[in-house]
């Protein structure tokens, strides 16, 4: 690990730990939501930025986590913690199933199938309102007996950091290397003895499980699980955060999550426009700065005057 990376992590963590003692309840809420997006965007980036697979079901898997855990706790009285665990497993199994079906056919098929899956999850949730309460939303119990925003903040922080560490270790391991090889050139990787289908499948299953975890926590924080969680609009936010922050870099999606979530608090008053604005920013980034904010920053720091 580079010394600058360690420095940044330590500084970031220290700020994060003392932060709740200075923030209003409202901004604490914004931080918690940002941390949810950090989990989502980082894991989506692991899939898209490191293996080149664009899944549109990441929000849907978060929905699977949220609804699984929510329904288990509401109807069977299962503890939310156990519920979240079962939610993770459900998301992983569904991811594995979808992956087995479409990954051997290549990237385009994964994108199409996950988009379909996402839409199906929406249809099922809105139609099975006996179980899901449809668009009204399902009221779920919280994680604590006594509600504490600071408590939620630290839980979200701990999980986000844990996910971050795992992802960091992964992309700097031999696994990360094989993932990048698959992204660089699938045929050459396969000719070098790499089982490319397995690499893709594992990445998809693993990241789907993380989405399930993030969704489960999110549902028990909001204490209201609605079809917004698995919606394509939510999917778009996660994708925009990764693209704007910088895909294929570890810090990119983390930066993107905070920037976009905080920004959206400021432009919330513009209502309908805010998704449109994010969309236009993301388009401009994808077109002119495909390595995102992180790419711009690194280039600036290197002081490279050359243009590509």
């Amino acid at each position: 690990m580079k010394s600058s990376t360690i420095w940044f992590s330590v500084a970031g963590l220290s700020v994060a730990i003392i932060l709740p003692f200075f923030l209003s309840q409202y901004w604490l809420h914004v931080m918690i939501i940002s941390l949810f997006y950090v989990m989502m965007a980082s894991s989506w980036n692991l899939l898209a930025g490191y293996t080149g697979q664009v899944s549109f079901a990441h929000a849907a898997f978060a929905g699977v986590g949220a609804y699984t855990s929510g329904m288990l706790s509401v109807f069977l009285g299962v503890s939310p913690w156990l519920g979240i665990l079962i939610g993770i497993i459900s998301a992983a199994l569904l991811g594995l199933g979808l992956g087995v079906l479409c990954i051997r056919m290549g990237g385009i098929y994964l994108s199409l199938t996950t988009l379909g899956f996402s839409e199906i999850i929406r249809i099922i949730i809105t139609n099975e309102d006996n179980w899901t309460r449809g668009t009204m939303g399902l009221q779920t119990p919280g994680l604590f007996v006594e509600y504490s925003k600071t408590g939620y903040y630290f839980i979200f922080l701990a999980v986000a950091v844990a996910i971050g560490v795992v992802i960091y270790k992964l992309i700097h391991s031999e696994w990360g290397l094989t993932m990048r090889a698959v992204l660089n050139d699938e045929i050459a990787a396969s000719a070098s003895g790499i089982n490319t289908i397995n690499v893709r499948l594992l990445a998809f299953t693993f990241t789907s499980a993380i989405a399930g975890l993030a969704g489960g926590l999110y549902g028990h924080y909001l204490m209201l699980v609605t079809p917004d969680i698995p919606s394509l609009g939510q999917m778009f936010l996660v994708l925009a955060m990764a693209v704007i922050g910088g895909m294929g870099s570890f810090a990119g999606p983390i930066v993107g999550s905070f920037v976009l979530e905080i920004l959206s608090e400021y432009i919330r008053e513009w209502g309908e426009y805010h998704v449109l604005i994010f969309g236009l920013i993301a388009l401009a980034m994808a077109r002119f700065a495909p390595e995102g904010l992180m790419g711009l920053w690194i280039n600036k720091r290197k002081g490279h005057g050359h243009t590509n």
Binding site: A48, G52, V54, G107, L232, F236, Y273, L276, A282, A286
Partner: peptide
């Protein structure tokens, strides 16, 4: 770059959808 074209058209779909709403 297949991946980027997927991402770009997806973002475009969200932009156009919101534009249509407006």
């Amino acid at each position: 770059d297949d991946m980027y074209s997927l991402i770009v058209t997806f973002i475009l779909s969200i932009v156009l959808q919101n534009l249509a709403l407006l």
